[in-house]
Deep mutational scan, measured.
Amino acid sequence: GEEMDTAEIARQVKEQLIKHNIGQRIFGHYVLGLSQGSVSEILARPKPWNKLTVRGKEPFHKMKQFLSDEQNILALRSIQGR
């Protein structure tokens, strides 16, 4: 696969979550399948791509996919709003 700019992906995700008022817990649960603790760690201190294991890269693939389609963001927003 291609190398990803993990810091940039994390920054964009944080931006979207704040902009749409989506909590990290909801994002972690529905998008990444991770706990809030793992999510906040990944978003606060993303490791460089070449330092990640295959498993460590997974959340970034999912985040990139999440960012690529605004429908994903809107869907999360409606879950959050319940």
Rank of each mutant, 00 (worst) to 15 (best):
G1S: 13
G1D: 14
G1N: 12
E2H: 06
E2K: 09
E2C: 08
E2N: 12
E2R: 07
E2P: 04
E2Q: 09
E3D: 13
E3A: 11
E3V: 10
E3T: 11
E3L: 09
E3N: 09
M4C: 02
M4K: 05
M4S: 05
M4A: 04
D5A: 07
D5L: 01
D5N: 10
D5S: 10
D5R: 03
D5E: 08
T6P: 04
T6H: 02
T6A: 02
T6G: 00
A7E: 12
A7W: 08
A7R: 10
A7T: 11
E8F: 07
E8I: 07
E8L: 10
E8K: 09
E8A: 09
E8G: 06
I9F: 03
I9K: 04
I9E: 03
I9H: 03
I9C: 04
A10I: 06
A10H: 00
A10Y: 01
A10S: 08
A10L: 01
A10V: 14
R11D: 06
R11T: 08
R11H: 09
R11M: 09
R11W: 04
R11C: 05
Q12E: 03
V13G: 03
V13D: 04
V13F: 00
K14E: 06
K14H: 15
K14D: 05
E15F: 05
E15Q: 10
E15D: 07
L17D: 02
L17R: 03
L17P: 03
L17K: 03
I18W: 09
I18S: 13
I18H: 11
I18A: 13
I18P: 02
K19V: 06
K19P: 02
K19F: 07
K19R: 09
K19D: 05
K19M: 06
K19G: 03
H20A: 05
H20N: 07
H20G: 03
H20E: 04
H20Q: 05
N21E: 11
N21M: 04
N21V: 03
N21D: 12
N21C: 07
N21K: 11
N21H: 13
N21Q: 12
I22T: 02
G23R: 11
G23M: 09
G23T: 12
G23K: 13
Q24I: 12
Q24L: 14
Q24M: 12
Q24C: 09
Q24G: 04
R25T: 14
R25H: 14
R25Y: 13
R25V: 10
R25M: 10
R25S: 15
I26E: 14
I26F: 10
I26G: 03
I26C: 11
F27V: 01
F27I: 01
G28L: 05
G28V: 04
G28I: 06
G28C: 07
G28M: 06
H29V: 06
H29D: 12
H29P: 03
Y30G: 03
Y30L: 09
Y30S: 07
Y30I: 12
Y30W: 07
V31F: 06
V31S: 01
V31Q: 01
V31G: 02
V31M: 04
V31T: 04
L32K: 00
L32A: 02
L32W: 01
L32Q: 01
L32P: 01
L32Y: 00
L32F: 00
L32T: 02
L32G: 01
G33M: 03
G33L: 01
G33E: 05
G33K: 07
G33R: 05
G33H: 09
L34V: 08
L34P: 03
L34Q: 08
L34R: 04
L34W: 06
S35Q: 12
S35Y: 05
Q36Y: 11
Q36H: 12
Q36D: 14
Q36F: 08
G37R: 14
G37C: 12
G37Y: 12
S38D: 15
S38H: 12
S38V: 15
S38A: 15
V39R: 00
V39C: 12
V39I: 07
V39Q: 02
V39L: 09
V39E: 04
V39D: 02
S40A: 14
S40L: 09
S40M: 11
S40Y: 09
S40G: 11
S40F: 08
S40T: 14
E41H: 05
E41G: 05
E41V: 04
E41P: 02
E41L: 05
I42R: 00
I42N: 03
I42C: 06
L43V: 02
L43Q: 01
L43C: 01
L43N: 00
L43A: 02
L43M: 06
L43T: 00
L43F: 08
A44P: 02
A44F: 10
A44C: 08
A44N: 15
A44Q: 14
A44E: 15
R45W: 07
R45C: 13
R45L: 06
R45Q: 12
R45P: 01
R45T: 13
P46L: 05
P46K: 00
P46C: 04
K47P: 11
K47S: 09
K47L: 14
K47R: 10
K47Q: 14
P48A: 09
P48V: 05
P48W: 05
P48F: 03
P48K: 04
P48G: 03
W49A: 07
W49K: 01
W49E: 06
W49P: 11
W49Q: 00
N50D: 09
N50H: 10
N50E: 10
N50Y: 08
K51M: 12
K51Y: 07
K51A: 13
K51L: 13
L52G: 00
L52W: 01
L52E: 00
L52A: 00
L52S: 00
T53G: 12
T53R: 02
T53N: 10
T53C: 11
T53L: 04
V54E: 15
V54C: 11
V54M: 15
V54N: 15
R55G: 12
R55F: 11
R55K: 15
G56M: 08
G56V: 05
G56C: 06
G56Y: 05
G56W: 06
G56F: 07
G56D: 14
K57A: 07
K57C: 04
K57Q: 14
E58G: 05
E58H: 03
E58L: 09
E58Y: 08
E58S: 06
P59Q: 15
P59S: 15
P59G: 12
P59E: 15
F60S: 01
F60L: 02
F60K: 00
F60W: 14
H61C: 08
H61K: 13
H61M: 13
H61D: 07
H61G: 05
K62C: 04
K62I: 08
K62L: 09
M63V: 01
M63T: 01
M63C: 05
K64D: 04
K64A: 12
K64T: 06
K64S: 08
Q65T: 12
Q65G: 06
Q65L: 10
Q65E: 14
F66Q: 01
F66V: 01
F66W: 15
F66S: 01
F66H: 00
F66G: 00
F66T: 00
L67K: 00
L67D: 01
L67A: 02
L67P: 01
S68R: 08
S68E: 13
S68C: 08
S68G: 08
S68K: 12
S68D: 12
S68V: 05
D69V: 05
D69S: 11
D69R: 07
D69E: 08
E70S: 10
E70Y: 08
E70R: 11
E70H: 13
E70P: 14
E70N: 10
E70M: 08
E70L: 05
Q71C: 09
Q71N: 10
Q71S: 14
N72V: 05
N72E: 10
I73D: 02
I73Y: 03
I73C: 09
L74W: 10
L74Y: 09
L74T: 10
L74N: 11
L74C: 08
L74R: 11
L74G: 08
A75H: 14
A75E: 15
A75R: 14
A75W: 13
A75T: 13
L76V: 05
L76I: 06
L76Y: 00
R77T: 12
R77A: 14
R77D: 06
S78F: 07
S78P: 05
S78E: 15
S78M: 13
S78G: 13
I79R: 11
I79S: 07
I79K: 14
Q80D: 10
Q80N: 12
Q80G: 11
Q80C: 12
Q80S: 12
G81Y: 08
G81S: 12
G81F: 08
G81Q: 15
G81N: 15
G81W: 10
G81T: 14
R82V: 14
R82N: 15
R82H: 15
R82Q: 15
